[in-house]
Design a binder for these strands. Structure first.
Lengths: 238, 238
DNA sequence: CGCGGCTTTGATGTTCATCAAGTAAAGTGG
DNA sequence: CCACTTTACTTGATGAACATCAAAGCCGCG
């Protein structure tokens, strides 16, 4: 398993953070000098599906944000089954909540499709936080928002049962990730199960049922949302 | 309901933050001027059991920390049932994760016993963060830790079933709150159910079963952990 | 002293996990 | 490129864990 770690490609992109589309989300108001610091401490890394970006237990020493692709954060439970804590899509600050913990990762991060990640050295980020109070406030603000969203979405998912959770996931891909009603599922049925805390079998059963009921169409990995409104209602009602 | 809000007592304590036992947890390295700022922006508030400290939807405009007593953070689900997100005990920073969100509370905070809370105006805290980088880093560090702990404990609880969750809660009170094997349960059976995401009935059934099996003794609200080791093992194994 | 909330126990039903078994797809090594 | 192996996908049958419904005793409090 570990050998995968060494296959990752490291390259420097010519473009600077200044021209990055995700810049304004956090680094919007830095001055030229600060940009240069960030930019010099930054590496772009490309991962293939299945490559592990960070292992549980590794030291947290960089700030990660996702430019392309998709990653999962997951832990392995006592019986050896993986449980997915969250999916991250382009624009997400993968590990922002954990970044300042001074301990090590409590979960692993793995690419679920070809993924491009920006990796910024933590010390540089900390330096800017220490010297630029407004920036510190912006980081704090992002952290609060991410934390609130996680708690909120967990709360909502916990009230739903199987069908509601599956419908929610399908709508997440259609609305928030691909912005289309037809898309290729980037993850396996098993991973969907790990994400919604259900077994693979029941996840598949629900997919089949949704297909029988004319809610979706399935061609292997290609999903089409046929009855969007009814899916929405299932996602809502549980 | 809302009228409760106005019954809360507001008083200024003579002692300053400088002498507070919880000082070193966050405010340890502030200079005299900063202490004075915090101290002047601070109010101590005393709440009785059942009094709501913050309502979901209220604006977040202060930093809260708990000096005495216990509070619960909770939300009301779609069917009108409450779900407890977390319990906080003395020394906890009740709303630290939410503080910088610039929106409003997504949950309510209520005292479950007589509770003394320090309430610090947010603008003053933000001012100090903006001008004292080391302090900002310490706040970020605390936020990361709290977030990690929440995610970790949720992950662990989600793998357990009824008995494991109840055992975990009992050990939490004994080990982390009261540091005794005999204590008065500060919350009702229903609230325990809300905390572990189970029904009141099954929570009670499990209590009875633990008593029958000689794990605990129950006299109304007074709980005695009789077989601490076996409880520990149940909490661990699920 | 009676009303409402808390507590308790039992009976029944639902949701989901587990086990089993087979097909399809996707890597892998010769 | 093909046999072989592994992993993903699928469906059915059975059982366990927990929710729901019902009913009654208890306790505090106005």
């Amino acid at each position: 398993m570990w050998f995968k770690h060494f296959r990752m490609k490291i390259k420097k992109d010519i473009k600077s953070c200044k021209t990055c589309v995700y810049r304004q989300m956090l680094f919007g108001d830095l001055d030229d000098f600060e940009y240069k610091l960030i930019n010099d401490a930054r590496a772009e890394r490309l991962y293939k599906r299945g490559e592990v970006i960070k292992y549980e237990g590794e030291k947290v020493d960089s700030f990660l944000y996702l430019r392309r692709g998709m990653v999962k954060l997951f832990k392995t439970d006592t019986r050896g089954k993986e449980q997915i804590l969250s999916l991250n899509k382009p624009g997400d600050f993968v590990n922002l909540l954990t970044i300042f913990t001074k301990t090590s990762y409590r979960y692993s991060i793995e690419a679920i499709e070809e993924t491009l990640v920006c990796d910024v050295d933590l010390e540089v980020l900390e330096h800017i936080i220490c010297t630029n109070g407004d920036f510190a406030m912006r980081v704090l603000n992002r952290m609060s928002n991410i934390s609130d969203e996680i708690i909120e979405s967990r709360f909502e998912q916990s009230q739903k049962q199987l069908k509601g959770r599956i419908a929610t996931i399908l709508l997440y891909f259609a609305d928030d990730v691909y912005h289309k009603k037809i898309f290729n599922l980037p993850i396996t049925r098993r991973e969907i199960g790990e994400l919604i805390a259900m077994t693979t079998e029941n996840t598949i059963r629900t997919f089949s049922e949704f297909k029988r009921d004319g809610l979706i169409d399935i061609q292997n990995k290609t999903i089409t949302l046929v009855d969007y409104d009814r899916l929405k209602s299932i996602a809502k009602s549980g």
